[in-house]
Design a protein around this nucleic acid. Structure first.
Lengths: 208, 208
DNA sequence: TGTCCGATCTGGACAGTGCTCAGATAGGCT
DNA sequence: AGCCTATCTGAGCACTGTCCAGATCGGACA
């Protein structure tokens, strides 16, 4: 096959295989779930031999890291949008951001799982993900600082941010299980349920 | 047979292999982590052929379900203990339960992960796990009801319980990442950090 | 322009996995 | 005793992640 490759879909030295592989992985993730995400399946989806990915990623984990990176970017965009959308009414900002976070996890459950599973030890992650996660984290903390005002200590803002992030992540994971179906119905769907739960987080410290 | 028929699974000619397999799995989990938990490795650890487990579990997932079942039982015990230990000072009960939950996840991270990963759809879980999870869930709800008193609607208690569970699970997962190391130090270790975060959950709804 | 180098890609191979199945083994029942 | 059934084994299938020797091609250098 020495000629006629010009107009064909694949130029045999792929233009940007790295990118194509990440795209293929995300496509498989959304279509068939995390269980179907094998390196060979990704190569197959990209129309390339099973060994080809190894010229762009050290191993499967590194591919997953790249996928996670894309995920964190998308989540950051969603949360930034939510913040912007709610800036008019200050008090609801945190709720809007929280809802957008959980909503993202519901819209892209497989991708969301990869974002947290991709590496055992987050300190070892390539800085890309850390950055993005960090930037989303900073976005939440910034919102807290705005809402809390000046009378609150920095440490409290920090802890509240962590607490909110944990609550969001926990709610995101729990919402993937179908257990809350009746409650969701009672609150007029997914979003209503999320808002209701979010608004009850304070009860944890209720004084008697 | 006068031992109250404790294990309903009848013993057979090579011992109680079902139980031995679950134990072997947990041993591998604690020793080498979830990545090393293959069905063949479990069989190897139990000193049995790779096909033997299939006479006691339909597939790998069913073994994992059995492992998760043991995990939920242990978690239930830990939380019940924490509740009993704190009953003197009512206000701290929820915090104590929460701390014991997160502590358990830190003490048995691999087991904890299996407890939530073992099945895609929690509604499809064998009733054993559902029961245990349910019973732990009821324990938390009961504590909330005690703390909140009578003036609070049942629905609010329900939502608060869910919120607390989500927060606990989120904190448990987040704490597995090493990112909070400096903060943990600032609060005198794991437990101090947990208590601090837990006590800040209410800030999520701070009014401005 | 022609030649060669190094990055890219392939086919084949290896060990390990989940799972199935025909047969071996050995308790417990009549 | 003799059978029956649950239990266990070994071989084998399709799949996986990973590595390797070689094929192929783009672009730099002559």
């Amino acid at each position: 096959m020495s000629t006629a490759a010009v107009a064909d879909t694949r130029p045999y030295h792929h233009g940007d295989l790295r990118r194509a592989l990440v795209d293929a992985a995300i496509r498989i993730l959304e279509r068939e779930g995390p269980g179907a995400l094998s390196l060979r399946a990704v190569a197959r989806e990209a129309g390339v031999s099973p060994a080809a990915p190894y010229h762009h990623f050290k191993d499967k984990g590194e591919l997953l890291d790249a996928v996670a990176h894309v995920g964190w970017e998308a989540l950051g965009v969603a949360m930034t949008d939510a913040k912007a959308r709610s800036s008019a009414e200050m008090g609801s900002m945190l709720t809007e951001i929280g809802v957008s976070y959980v909503q993202f996890s519901q819209d892209h459950p497989a991708l969301y799982r990869v974002m947290y599973d991709c590496s055992r030890d987050k300190d070892m992650l390539p800085e890309g993900i850390q950055d993005k996660e960090d930037s989303a984290y900073c976005l939440v903390r910034g919102a807290f600082k705005q809402v809390a005002g000046d009378e609150v200590a920095d440490m409290d803002v920090e802890l509240a941010t962590i607490a909110a992030w944990c609550a969001g992540h926990g709610l995101a994971e729990m919402s993937m299980f179908k257990q809350f179906a009746p409650l969701k119905e009672a609150f007029g769907g997914e979003e209503g349920f999320l808002r209701a739960v979010l608004s009850h987080l304070g009860m944890f410290n209720r004084k008697t």
